[in-house]
Structures are given as C-alpha cells and as structure tokens.
C-alpha cells in the first residue's frame, strides 16, 4: 500500500532476541492521523513491532535491531536519539489499565510533572483538557482527588489514555487495550479512538478481528515475524489478497 506522507516509516526491519529472529524484513508506512491495526496469531511479532516505535524493546536483554525506523522523517534508532522526547512523542497503552495508585488528578499530571511543569494553573488546565479528550471530565471533575484505582476498568483505561495525552504525544500505541474490558466498554473505547484520530496517529494491536474491522482504517497482517498483507481495512476484511490472511481472518488458521 502506498502512503503519501507517512507518519512512521519502517524499512527492512529485522529484530532479534538473541538468536531468535522476531521480525523479518518488515517494511511498512503508517498513515498520519489514521488508525492502523496490527493483527496476527500469538507470537507473530505484532507486540514486538509495536514496541519498536517507542523503543520499549530496548529494555529486553540481547535484543538486536537492523533496518530503518523513522518517525516524521527522523531515524529513532540514531545514536543521538533523545529517548525521553521519543517516549513523550510516542505514548503507549497496555492490556490491563495500569493507573498509578495515586489520585485521578495526580495520575494525569504525572507526565507533565516529570517533564518539569510546576505551575498549578497550567496543571489544572492539562487535567481538564486531557480528561475531556477521553470524555471523563464531566463525570470526574468533582472527584479528582479520589484514587484512580476506585474507577471502573473502562474508566481506568480512559484515564491511562488521558495520562498519555497530558504529555502531548503524536503517536499512540495500544497493545490489546480492550482485552480486559467488557463488550460495552470495548465499544466505548473504540468510539474514543475515532475521536482521538483527528489529532493523533494510532496503532493498535488486537486479537479481536471484529475490533480491527470496526475501529481501524488500515490493517496489517503479520505471521511469524513477517508482513503478509497490508491494506485498507475494508479491503483486507472483504477481499484479502493473500491466502494466509484469508485463512486467519476467517478463523481457519490454527
């Protein structure tokens, strides 16, 4: 698939955990302000690929990466890459909501505070803006001092997204963000993503095929560390070009 001005560009990416090659010559361009879903069976490398974009994999011992990964035209694996700036720019949301055991307010301002913001008025503004973006502000504005852990799982996941928005990222990575949520909460998070994509480039790893079909603009199918197919979601789910994609999305691949 040809993407004119990609937000993220990956070329011939090989990734090894020791002697195991987890990603093989992956080449993909991610469209700006669109939702791209990465699907594939367990162990296909989709979470590994997601973690390439904020260099979370760097924390794994024995990891080796070859190839090019650019965000906004900048090689994020260059020697002089500012990791703090990169992780600010590329935020991540995980399977299980992971709010800090702090108040709702302190959760949201955690990032800005780490980045040096001290002005109370500014911080208040950030909290309102970030919680509004995830449609939680009206519900929580009088309860900001309550523990974040008292919220429902769905609200906790929203809070985690707002915590990430507070540091003004460009790219949001979501690794199975709804797998701990019930179906209604899942749909609500998906709706939220549709709103967020006006401002952010979103990548989502999901096992839920219906979620990829419903919520994403482009779909990327991976198998054994390789890219098998990448295309507009409606095409991939109605008329996949590769037999292996067909087998996977119709549930005939075990």
């Amino acid at each position: 698939m040809i993407i004119e001005k990609p937000k993220i560009k990956v070329e011939n990416l090989d990734l090894y955990y020791g002697s195991f090659q987890a990603l093989k010559k992956v080449t993909i361009s991610i469209e700006e302000k669109k939702i791209t879903s990465i699907i594939g069976p367990s162990g296909c490398g989709k979470s590994t690929l997601l973690r390439v974009f904020n260099r979370m994999n760097d924390l794994v011992e024995g990891i080796r990466i070859e190839g090019l990964v650019e965000i906004d035209g900048e090689n994020i694996y260059a020697k002089d890459t500012n990791m703090v700036a990169l992780r600010k720019k590329v935020g991540m949301v995980f399977q299980r909501p992971n709010p800090f055991p702090l108040s709702i307010y302190d959760n949201v301002i955690y990032g800005p505070r780490v980045h040096g913001e001290r002005n109370r008025k500014k911080l208040d503004e950030i909290v309102e803006k970030s919680l509004r973006a995830v449609l939680l502000f009206d519900e929580l504005k009088d309860k900001l001092d309550r523990s974040a852990l008292s919220l429902s799982l769905e609200s906790q996941q929203r809070l985690c997204i707002s915590r990430l928005l507070a540091v003004q990222p460009d790219v949001i990575l979501l690794d199975e963000p709804c797998s701990a949520l019930d179906p209604m909460a899942t749909l609500k998070i998906e709706e939220l993503l549709q709103v967020l994509k006006n401002d952010y480039t979103i990548l989502i790893v999901t096992h839920n095929m219906q979620q990829a079909a419903r919520a994403s603009d482009n779909t990327f199918y991976m198998l054994l560390g390789e890219m098998i197919e990448y295309g507009p979601t409606e095409q991939v789910f109605t008329n996949p070009k590769d037999k292996r994609t067909e087998d996977y999305i119709t549930g005939r691949f075990g």
Partner: peptide
C-alpha cells in the same frame, strides 16, 4: 458467525 472475507462474500 461474524463472517469475514470469502465467507462474508
């Protein structure tokens, strides 16, 4: 069954 791809077609 939420059919996809050829099943859907």
């Amino acid at each position: 069954q939420q059919p996809m791809a050829k099943d859907l077609r």
